[in-house]
Amino acid sequence: MKNQFKPHEEHGNIIKTIEIGNSTIIIRDKECVSKQEDIDKILDEFSSIGWAILEKKYASENE
């Protein structure tokens, strides 16, 4: 499956490809952020998602 994904101006250049089992993870330079404001926003989103997962997990365990 390597080399199937080509650089594309709209999506940015591929900087790393990781294959895990049948899945391929592609990291492109356009998705990389360097502003602290953008980094903080992403971390806040990860935190919100993590809490939602934990709440769902503990809610199902307490039923």
Rank of each mutant, 00 (worst) to 15 (best):
I20D: 13
H11K: 05
A52I: 01
I18L: 10
K2W: 09
M1I: 12
S34H: 02
Q36V: 09
I42W: 03
I15S: 00
E63S: 11
E61M: 11
S48A: 15
E31R: 02
K35P: 03
E45P: 01
I20W: 01
F46A: 15
I14V: 14
C32Q: 11
Q4C: 07
S23A: 12
K41D: 14
I15Y: 02
D29A: 06
A59D: 14
D40C: 10
I25Q: 08
F46V: 14
K6S: 12
I26S: 08
N22H: 03
Y58H: 14
I27L: 15
D29G: 08
I15Q: 00
M1K: 10
R28H: 10
L54M: 14
R28M: 09
K57M: 15
S48I: 10
T24C: 12
I15V: 10
K35G: 01
E9M: 06
S48V: 08
E10P: 03
D38G: 08
G12C: 01
I26R: 02
M1N: 08
L43F: 15
K6P: 03
I27Q: 14
I14W: 00
D44T: 10
F5D: 14
N3G: 10
S23Y: 03
F5K: 10
C32I: 15
N13M: 06
G50T: 11
N3R: 05
E63A: 12
I39N: 00
K56R: 08
H11C: 08
D40K: 10
E9L: 09
N22F: 02
H8G: 00
N22G: 09
K41W: 06
E55H: 14
Y58G: 10
D38L: 07
I49H: 04
R28W: 04
